[in-house]
């Protein structure tokens, strides 16, 4: 099988995702990813012009949950996985200029 994703790319993606893998794991992922890409290559041969992206889904009821809050027990662990934390916040490089700060609490 032709390799379209290289080990160097996989290592880069892992680094950007801040995930660490052993050499064996990387080899196994490399095989899987190339299989997946090859499968999509095969799908690309089909004419899907008139097929909507959600055509395979039935119109039935999706699963719902009822409006009862339930605390997640791992919330204390969350900050431990972050590279930079202060005062309970995730710390990121400053996002806005000082004069804009009042206005940019959120994007939505």
């Amino acid at each position: 099988m032709k390799e379209v994703v290289y080990l160097s790319e996989l290592e880069k993606i892992a680094r950007l995702s801040k995930l660490g893998f052993s050499a064996e794991e990387l080899q196994s992922f490399l095989r899987d990813i190339n299989d997946i890409v090859a499968h999509f290559e095969k799908l690309n041969q089909l004419d899907l012009q008139d097929v909507s992206p959600t055509s395979h889904l039935g119109g039935g009821e999706p699963p719902f949950f009822s409006d009862e809050p339930q605390a997640w027990e791992g919330s204390e662990e969350v900050l431990k996985g972050a590279p930079w934390v202060a005062g309970g916040y995730f710390i990121v490089p400053r996002i806005v200029d000082k004069e804009e700060k009042e206005n940019e609490d959120r994007r939505i």
């Binding site: 005062g87 309970g88 916040y89 995730f90 710390i91 490089p93 400053r94 806005v96 000082k98």
Partner: peptide, 16 residues
Amino acid sequence: LVHEGAFLPPGTSGVD
């Protein structure tokens, strides 16, 4: 996002 507070290192923002 918070952009001000004694706990914030200079040049950073906090995410809640």
